[in-house]
Design a protein around this nucleic acid. Sequence first.
DNA 1: AAAAGGTTTAACCGAACGGTCATATATAAG
DNA 2: CTTATATATGACCGTTCGGTTAAACCTTTT
Lengths: 232, 232
Amino acid sequence: MTVRLNLLFNPFGLTKIKNIMTEVEKLTEEKIFEAATEVFQEKGFDGTRMQNIAQKAGINKALLHYYFRKKDALFDAVFQKLAAKLFSKFAPILEPGLTLEEKLRFFFREHIEFLKENPRLPAFIINEINRKPERIQRIIRNLDFEHFYNVLAEQHRDEFEKYNITPESLPQIMTSIAAISIFPFVARNIFEVILGKFGMDFGKFLEDRKDFAPEFLLGALKYREKSKKIKP
Amino acid sequence: MTVRLNLLFNPFGLTKIKNIMTEVEKLTEEKIFEAATEVFQEKGFDGTRMQNIAQKAGINKALLHYYFRKKDALFDAVFQKLAAKLFSKFAPILEPGLTLEEKLRFFFREHIEFLKENPRLPAFIINEINRKPERIQRIIRNLDFEHFYNVLAEQHRDEFEKYNITPESLPQIMTSIAAISIFPFVARNIFEVILGKFGMDFGKFLEDRKDFAPEFLLGALKYREKSKKIKP
DNA sequence: AAAAGGTTTAACCGAACGGTCATATATAAG
DNA sequence: CTTATATATGACCGTTCGGTTAAACCTTTT
């Protein structure tokens, strides 16, 4: 386990081969990783101090460098894991047996719920990507989007036809779906204050959004259906 | 002018009263401010080095502290100006004489064009707010949202009725509008790579979006009109 | 022209940071 | 028990950073 972890987290060098892994070691490495995940999300790469992570993990700073030799290495491990976590939540879109409508309702409900549990995740990923775009490119380049599109178009050929979803408009629609779901969390601090001015609760707003978002999106799609003939 | 600038930028202390301001001084202060605006947007507060700003402004680091005594003070000045710039772009929504449809089309076109010219602006504001939420609260608390809502509801009473826009759904709709317009810029580096995989250009995507966004949103609103009777 | 006050600079300072090292402690193997 | 190896620690190092200082320079006032 530790070997596998080190291979994942520290791909650049000296993964020590150990026959047996002590329970303590596993705990320490996990404790570090969890502490780092917290601090990096809260403070960002530049704002994070190794001392701070060590403190939160309840260990010495030198021990931090014993497990993850550089700040970069530790950050990369955390970033990669969190990015995968975020992107994996789009996977259910490809599950078979559901109509497009059903998928949309399911997606928004599950996605917003997931983000409620990981509210700092999207802003963290987005900020670090803006700070150093190479990070995401390495991750995204390995994903097979052509496959993604083909499966989706195959599964929903009729609905794509009905709603006039073309290879040209699909990116616009997908972007809007992601935006509607993610943006409230990214700009949470802004909306929270504004909503507060009207005596509204952000938690309530999010609960409402689980229903509002799919209805909103389906409305937009269905209207395309109506106006399809007018503006082909 | 310098006095006014210093009052704005450096509200905590010693605004030197000068009868006459030399041309050089104005240039220096402006040069610093512009350099700081660039660097802060690119690197964020934590990633920015005062030495780097001084270099970009073509001056000495000590002179930087002569004009803006602390990094915080310089950052606050830049942040406040940029935040105002970003939020001010929502103002046209209150202009009289246009229908809701016209406003939406106008807003998306102008807003996306503005963001094309200031692509780093939204991500910068959002990140720094997440890093230190107090920043935005000070700014937002002074805005009169009740007035905003009243004017809007007054101007478009018929359309609000027609599209079933209520005090409860308006935040959802406004959030979605902001999201659809801003999010592509915030997550630009992600979308750019994905679009590239399909041989599509991000610039073209944005141009398309100026038309797509309002149609999309109006579709969603108009569908509400249709289904209003079904689910009141 | 000389005094005064604002502007610019090079040199400097202390604190904080990422990272290392020597050493100690714990664990497993022979 | 002894040896070897992995794990943990406190002290330490070189560098970088935000910020300061003292002195030089320039412009305006008298």
